[in-house]
Design a protein around this nucleic acid. Sequence first.
DNA 1: TCAATAGTTCAATATAATTGAACTATTGAA
DNA 2: TTCAATAGTTCAATTATATTGAACTATTGA
Lengths: 103, 103
Amino acid sequence: MVQFVHPSVEDITLAGVLGALADPMRLRIVGNMIKKNDCISCSEAAPCPNMAKSTLSHHFRILREAGIIRTGKVGVENRNVLRSDDINKRFPGLLDEILKFAN
Amino acid sequence: MVQFVHPSVEDITLAGVLGALADPMRLRIVGNMIKKNDCISCSEAAPCPNMAKSTLSHHFRILREAGIIRTGKVGVENRNVLRSDDINKRFPGLLDEILKFAN
DNA sequence: TCAATAGTTCAATATAATTGAACTATTGAA
DNA sequence: TTCAATAGTTCAATTATATTGAACTATTGA
């Protein structure tokens, strides 16, 4: 059984959030999640078609462990949602401000 | 002669800015710069007393090459200023929003 | 039961961060 | 004008992180 690790709200850090978003590929993943209505599979959110799936999996793990997204398994695929509310509790307005400039 | 490299405004990237600020030490350096009125030497902005000066120098280079700070040599020391105006031209409001949560 | 799908984990290699040691440049004093 | 002190850079070595192919796990549908 694959167990996904998600930090609690109080464990989300500024450097962690910035670090997770400080990568063009991960910015595009999060941008795609917003565009495609927020709850999508990993491959659907992929920033480019030729990326190795292990790399994609790694990027999702980084986003997950920084508290940016929440991942749950539904059937054969993972569904990912942005943790906007949680991040806003910790850093009000920050996420929107950053994602305004993504893509 | 030491030549400092600074990107032009249009070469400042979102991932670059986020990457430069995605480090607790660098967040503290920038926080210290704001607290101590913006134009300070490297050692004055140091995030902790026991950091190797080569490491400190490295962090200032990261901040400089991301376009976060501008460095100039004045006498025996370096003076560093935040490039708030330049970053605001490229990403209006972003820097303030991030630094609101630093420290 | 078996193949297909979606993703994870592992191990190897490639890239970035940290640090001590040696260096450069500027100042101020003998 | 020489010499020590100060402030930082650069280099080389080690350590940590990212990327990827290959092998694995879990779920679905035929």
